[in-house]
């Protein structure tokens, strides 16, 4: 079991033990759900990124996008699009997104790691 799996298992246990509290207090459940980072808010195209870019714990040669600020992602995508930053595939993908679309994706990606990989 990797450390990532272990964290997931811990999260699962945590979620289960909360259940009676939530049953007793539907208002609390609603508050938790409202604060949970929502996939429903994902900008068009954003969820496709995780097909290649996984959690940092995976230790992939493809960089994780976890922990990057939105501005940083926008700057890098711009550099990919212009060819200023050399790439194998990201230059070809970056050219498919406008400045506005890129910004929206970057804002979503910059949300906490939990938004994409861990239990909501």
């Amino acid at each position: 079991m990797t450390s990532h799996d272990m964290r997931r298992a811990k999260n699962r246990r945590g979620g289960r033990s909360l259940a009676p509290v939530l049953l007793a207090a539907p208002g609390l459940l609603a508050a938790l759900l409202a604060s949970a980072p929502a996939w429903a808010d994902a900008a068009p195209g954003a969820t496709a990124c995780t097909g290649c870019h996984g959690p940092a714990a995976l230790g992939s040669a493809i960089p994780s996008l976890d922990g990057h600020a939105a501005d940083e992602i926008v700057t890098q995508m711009h550099a990919f699009r212009s060819g200023e930053r050399k790439a194998t595939v990201m230059d070809r993908i970056a050219r498919g997104f406008t400045e506005e679309e890129t910004r929206a994706i970057a804002e979503w990606l910059a949300k906490p790691e939990a938004a994409r990989h861990a239990q909501p």
Partner: peptide, 12 residues
Amino acid sequence: YAQDWFRTITSE
């Protein structure tokens, strides 16, 4: 990247 794409996507 091909190898790690496979690891990432199957993990997701």
